[in-house]
Write a protein that binds this DNA or RNA. Structure first.
Lengths: 196, 196
DNA sequence: GCATTATAACGAATATCATTCGCTATTGAC
DNA sequence: GTCAATAGCGAATGATATTCGTTATAATGC
């Protein structure tokens, strides 16, 4: 028997990360990923089922790092409003518009996915839960994870996808600063009401 | 000289509408669109620059009809809260999840677009303006189109894109009812504050 | 050690389209 | 009528994800 080498797997992931960051999902080619990884196109299919799976694997590790980073930044703030604002700046600006970012890649990958790729929304659910907790903790001081924050986290992540989607188009007027401010205001207003 | 026939143009649009509604953007083929339209693949390029342009043309007329419909539905409501809720149900449920809907097509088309396709966000801007006015009118009773509603409209449309994106994946847990309720509440709360 | 065997690895197909090209046929303008 | 621009078309072209057939390798049992 022969066994898959971790080193080959890692090389593919690393190569794919560079390729996707540079070209996005659609214009990245398996051929170039293989070349940079020092293997062949066909051998990549020994390690991954399809191109989508590579993109998801690459995105997951990048995105989780971004989120952990964001959590730290938010916790460093003192006032609820500042916390919420940092959170939104991260999710509606910094992460989806990151210069070597992979959010555009993810959006492209997901939008071209077919049901037969049977995508698993694990990462999405993990993120929404994390964001809901962070919001709750930021606004009310406790991690009670109320219903409301679950919904708000959902809305924020839907809009995150939207930002990622629009970002690769020649940017239209970018209202993000205003939108972030407005959303911060609405979320904090809700927090006040909750306390009474 | 020979002149382009309106009838051929219309046939292409009509055929493309059916094709995109059935297969989405990526899996639709120019060949089938041509066939259903009774012309050849190559002749389609006499009428449209590229596949993206066909999708955008198809989407625009479908989407505008949906929006006009939504405006009517919202205006039919009496209470601000009911108006806002209908608005959100339209934009976060009915339109992006429409069974013969084209939103998935649009999302796919935009996410795979390259800068060289030089996409023009005219429709997007038109929609956000329309939504901002409708919100303002619904919540405050006047079309004053305050800054706040512009931002909220922007957020709603970003999330609209997100809903469209996620809809073609095997649907994860769908929080949309809760999210709509939560957003309705936040928008209306803001309206109250504005009045004082 | 050695034989066995599952499978990693790879180069060469395959299949699928969007888009382009070269040519022919049509039709509006003069 | 003649001319010339161009609609229309069938046959390339070019890209590229994925599959296939074969070979080489190494883990396992003896």
């Amino acid at each position: 028997m022969r066994v898959k080498k971790q080193s080959v797997y890692n090389a593919i992931l690393q190569s794919a990360t560079a390729e996707f960051a540079e070209h996005g999902y659609v214009k990245s080619t398996i051929g170039r990923i293989a070349e940079r990884a020092g293997t062949s196109s066909s051998n990549i299919y020994v390690y991954f089922q399809c191109k989508l799976d590579i993109a998801l694997a690459v995105y997951e590790s990048w995105f989780k790092a971004q989120i952990y980073n964001l959590v730290r930044t938010v916790r460093r703030q003192n006032m609820p409003e500042a916390k919420v604002k940092k959170l939104l700046e991260g999710l509606w600006n910094n992460i989806p518009k990151h210069k070597n970012g992979l959010t555009t890649t993810l959006v492209q990958a997901l939008s071209t996915a077919t049901p037969s790729d049977n995508y698993n929304p694990k990462l999405l659910q993990w993120t929404e839960k994390k964001i809901a907790e962070l919001l709750s903790e930021s606004v009310t001081g406790s991690t009670g994870n109320q219903e409301e924050f679950t919904s708000i986290a959902n809305i924020i992540m839907l809009a995150f996808d939207g930002v990622g989607l629009r970002h690769n188009l020649s940017k239209p007027v970018d209202h993000s600063a205003d939108s972030i401010q407005q959303m911060t205001y609405m979320i904090c207003a809700m927090g006040l009401k909750t306390r009474n």
